[in-house]
Design a binder for these strands. Structure first.
Length: 551
DNA sequence: CACCAACAACGG
DNA sequence: TGCGCCGTTGTTGGTG
């Protein structure tokens, strides 16, 4: 293959697909225009990466690392087909969840050859992403195999409209994930540091405990009358036992019920020790650089399609440190989360008009409050809490306590919704597969899952899967729609954080109100794209704030 | 010393 | 019968 002239991608090709592979050795992008079915319509071109223009095409690439490198070179894509993400969806749909999904594996599968395991994932690194860090052996061969695997995936997807849409949404998620990482979550190290000092006392010089923890540990020891390491569950159990209190564990809610002078300082210690260990100065130094926290988002990292993250625990940012997430000078955050997403998703999935109606359609609608009135009548004490418990029990599969009675009540009022989760549970117990709205597929049963206790556990898993996976699907579309709407509006606000049903945008103050408006538009659009005509509304109220801590 | 399981706490 | 789903991260305390 000889490199062609600089690409003059035709107007027709612009509406189609462009296979993109970076030749790290030569520092160019190899691109090959494809028709919608994935067949090449033009020769391979070698383009300097910075000159690549991906607008108007769906970029076909190996995995997120390609886009990470493109972003680092200042190139943005509009739409994508991420071979690795799509292969994962297809493999799971075939009931082989967990099988290798990298390009090499996909190519081997295509050739009927033994499927090699995926390469180990790269370790997260503090270095900025290097564009040409690693030479790719035989880039032309890789591009050819990329085109072949893509064509095969297209043939599969053509036969399954749901999966085809899911593939597009998953790939869009891949784009958003890399762009959020590139953008970074604004994080004020000075605010975080002040907050730590306020809670823990001045930062210790070495790796020792900060003053406040030392003082509380001493109080615990004094209360027990002997040396105790409050970080050690085993020592705490022994200390309580010697004081005449046998405990099943040292969880906070267990300790809280004990009447002993060590309890108060111990609870305070556990609280602050958690802050110090998980989000203290060490976390700050490791994960926040130049005012940004850049976690690596792993799209589809959870079997349900939820995202995972690597590095810094981005999906567990405790409320205590959220004040450090502050907009830049002259900027604002737009903070939005979908209201009671999972029960609303269930209502739409089941076509349960009654549950949809109980959820309400107003921006401030509260499904649990509406349900409380439906189930228990108006003004029943704790009605909302009980309604919430009933719904979550139905989705999670809990049958203990009051949940059984609540479930019976739900079944009478919302038979369609309950039937969906109960059928999913039955399928799981019988070892069958269950799927999300568009066809994301749960892992197959494993040997031993027919044992009653295991079968029931799998039933709870599949019961939850159909709802959680469809909710994750909705969230993918929301992200893609919001990104597209911001782009079309020329709004400079950027997605900077995403957590299951919640987004943060960051942008100039003047752009924030419009961005906040677009959130509900994107949510409505996602609901319509995923479910078509449905009485279900998913409210996603957005607020313009300076700090993530503002509630 | 590296590795791993159990525990605990955070998030949805 | 026994019974809520999905994760990440850090510490302890054991193992080889």
């Amino acid at each position: 293959m000889s490199p062609g002239p600089a690409p003059r991608v035709s107007a027709a090709a612009r509406t189609a697909r462009l296979a993109v592979h970076l030749d790290h050795e030569r520092g160019v992008a190899l691109v090959r225009p494809l028709d919608p079915a994935g067949e090449p319509v033009d020769a391979v071109c070698a383009v300097p990466v910075a000159e690549l223009d991906l607008r108007g095409t769906r970029s076909v690439w190996r995995n997120a690392r390609t886009y990470r490198a493109l972003l680092a070179a200042g190139v943005r894509a509009e739409r994508a087909h991420d071979l690795e993400l799509v292969e994962g969806l297809l493999v799971a749909a075939d009931g082989a969840s967990g099988a290798p999904r990298g390009l090499a594996a996909a190519a081997a599968r295509l050739a009927g050859a033994p499927v090699p395991p995926d390469e180990e994932r790269e370790e997260p690194t503090d270095e900025p992403p290097a564009l040409f860090r690693r030479a790719e052996p035989d880039p032309a061969g890789t591009l050819a195999s990329l085109v072949a695997v893509h064509a095969a995936q297209q043939r599969r997807l053509a036969a399954d409209p749901g999966l085809r849409t899911l593939a597009a949404a998953e790939s869009a998620g891949g784009i958003v994930a890399e762009e959020m990482r590139a953008e970074g979550l604004p994080w004020r190290a000075d605010v975080h540091d002040a907050l730590l000092t306020e809670a823990l006392g001045p930062r210790p010089a070495g790796h020792g405990r900060p003053p406040r923890l030392l003082a509380l540990a001493a109080e615990v020891e004094a209360a027990f009358g002997r040396p105790v390491n409050p970080d050690s569950p085993a020592e705490l159990l022994r200390a309580f036992a010697r004081a005449g209190v046998e405990l099943p564990s040292t969880r906070s809610w267990v300790i809280r019920q004990v009447d002993h002078p060590a309890v108060a300082p111990l609870l305070a210690y556990k609280d602050l020790a958690r802050l110090h260990a998980a989000h203290g100065w060490s976390w700050l130094r490791t994960w926040v650089h130049e005012g940004r926290f850049r976690p690596e988002y792993v799209v589809g990292g959870v079997v349900s399609g939820r995202w995972a993250t690597r590095g810094g625990g981005a999906l567990q940012i405790p409320r205590a440190v959220r004040a450090a997430v502050r907009a830049d000078e002259g900027h604002r955050l737009v903070m939005a989360d979908a209201a009671q997403l999972e029960p609303r998703i269930l209502a739409a999935l089941a076509g349960d008009a009654e549950l949809a109606r109980a959820g309400g359609r107003e921006r401030g609608s509260d499904l649990y409050a509406g349900l409380a009135a439906e189930l228990f009548g108006p003004n029943v004490p704790d009605g909302r809490a009980r309604a919430k418990l009933a719904v979550l029990s139905a989705i999670y599969g809990q049958t203990s306590g009051d949940a059984g009675a609540h479930l019976a009540l739900l079944r009478r009022r919302f038979p369609a919704a309950v039937a969906v989760v109960e059928e999913a549970a039955r399928a799981g117990e019988e070892g069958r597969l269950v799927r999300s709205r568009w066809g994301r597929t749960c892992p197959p049963a494993r040997p031993g899952d027919e044992v009653p206790a295991r079968a029931r556990a799998r039933g709870r898993f599949t019961r939850n899967f159909v709802v959680q996976a469809t909710a994750a699907e909705w969230a993918l579309v929301l992200l893609a729609e919001l990104r597209a709407m911001l782009g079309r509006a020329g709004n400079p606000s950027r997605l900077v954080f995403f957590q299951h049903d919640e987004v943060l945008l960051h942008g100039p103050t003047g752009a924030a109100p419009e961005a906040a408006e677009l959130v509900q538009d994107a949510a409505d659009s996602a609901t319509r794209i995923l479910f078509g005509a449905t009485p279900v509304r998913i409210p996603m109220p957005a607020r313009v704030v300076e700090s993530y801590a503002e509630k």
